[in-house]
């Protein structure tokens, strides 16, 4: 448990979350959501939850991003807000 590393990772996570919901291009938003998932996985490794961290890295950040990209390829990429 390193408090400074914890705080830096939490700030990165909040920045990624705000960017993911504010970007108009949906593909960029989904890629930033994947980056958010990997920062979350780093934070969990730092908290000692190793099993949760690699489940999140493979399932949440990997398969989730792939599903989102497949759905956006089948639909439209533009967004009004």
């Amino acid at each position: 448990m390193i408090r400074q590393l914890d705080l830096i990772l939490l700030i990165f996570i909040v920045i990624c979350a705000i960017a993911a919901i504010n970007i108009k291009d949906l593909m960029s938003a989904v890629i930033i959501l994947g980056a958010y998932g990997f920062f979350m996985c780093l934070l969990w490794t730092e908290m000692g939850a190793v099993d949760v961290a690699f489940t999140e890295a493979s399932v949440g950040a990997g398969i989730g991003t792939v599903l989102f990209i497949a759905a956006i390829n089948k639909t439209s990429r533009r967004s009004k807000d």
Partner: peptide, 12 residues
Amino acid sequence: RNLVKKLIGMNI
């Protein structure tokens, strides 16, 4: 208003 944005919010 975008539905994909709503899903991203649900994930967060």
